[in-house]
Design a protein around this nucleic acid. Structure first.
Length: 203
DNA sequence: CTCTTGATCTTCT
DNA sequence: GAAGATCAAGAGC
C-alpha cells in the first residue's frame, strides 16, 4: 500500500491506483461519469480525462446499433479494451468498451487536460498551446499517438495506463456533440469548469 | 467572434 | 452516391 513518507517528501503520490479491467464491467452510464478525473496515459503521455460520451447498442447514434461490422467488432467483445475507429476518413477516435461481452457499449474519450509528456504532444500536434493539444477526440489521439494499430488492446496493460482519481470531482452532463441521430440523449459528461473541454457545457 | 469548406475512410442505401 | 461520434484554415463581421 502507501509507502512511508521519507524526510523531505511533501507531495501526495502523483497518481492514483491503476484501474483494473473490472472497472469497465458495469453499466456504461456508470462508467462514463466515473472516468471524469481519471488519468489516461499512453506510453507515459497523456493527462486527466475531462470529457467523455456514452454509447450503447440500443442507441441509434452508436456504431454498434446495427450489429457487428469489421470496424466495430471490438465493441461486441469483453469490457476493458480499446475500440479505435477512423473518423471522417482523417482522425482516430478511442473508446473504452464497457459492460459485458455482447453488450456493445463504449465510452468515447473526448478531451484531456494534458499533464504528462507535453513535449511529445506538442511535437505530434504541431502546436504549443496547451489548451488545444487534447480538446477533442481526434486531437487527443494524435497527441498521444493512438491509431488503428492500437485497436483491441487491453486498457490495464501497456502501452495503456489508467489511474484512479485522487479527489472528488464535480461532473456535469449534457447533449452529445456532432450527432444527427439520438440528439436528445444527455450522455456527454465533463469536469465542471474545465478549460480543456472540446466545447463548454451550456450554463 | 461565427460561418463555411475541404480532407477522404467506413458503412449504408 | 451519401453521410458521419472531426479538425483546421480562411472569410466575414
Amino acid at each position: 500500500m502507501a509507502s512511508t513518507p521519507k524526510s523531505g517528501d511533501t507531495a501526495a503520490p502523483a497518481l492514483g491506483k491503476r484501474l483494473k479491467r473490472a472497472f469497465f464491467a458495469r453499466s456504461v452510464h456508470e462508467v462514463a461519469p466515473d472516468l471524469i478525473g481519471v488519468t489516461l496515459l499512453f506510453n507515459g503521455v497523456g493527462g486527466t480525462i475531462v470529457e467523455v460520451e456514452a454509447y450503447h447498442h440500443t442507441d441509434p447514434a452508436a456504431h454498434s446499433y446495427r450489429g457487428p461490422t469489421p470496424r466495430n467488432r471490438v465493441m461486441f467483445g469483453p469490457p476493458g479494451f480499446a475500440y479505435v475507429y477512423r473518423s471522417y476518413g482523417i482522425h482516430w477516435c478511442v473508446n473504452f468498451v464497457c459492460e459485458a461481452e455482447g453488450s456493445a457499449s463504449a465510452v468515447l474519450i473526448r478531451a484531456l487536460e494534458p499533464t504528462d509528456g507535453l513535449a511529445a504532444m506538442r511535437r505530434r500536434r504541431g502546436l504549443t498551446e496547451e489548451r488545444a493539444l487534447c480538446s477533442g477526440p481526434g486531437k487527443l489521439t494524435e497527441a498521444l499517438g493512438i491509431t488503428h494499430a492500437h485497436n483491441a488492446l487491453a486498457l490495464d496493460e501497456a502501452p495503456f495506463a489508467l489511474h484512479a482519481r485522487r479527489s472528488e470531482v464535480v461532473v456535469v452532463s449534457g447533449l452529445r456533440i456532432g450527432l444527427t441521430k439520438a440528439v436528445d440523449l444527455p450522455w456527454r459528461y465533463g469536469l465542471k469548469g474545465s478549460r480543456f473541454l472540446s466545447k463548454p457545457f451550456p450554463a
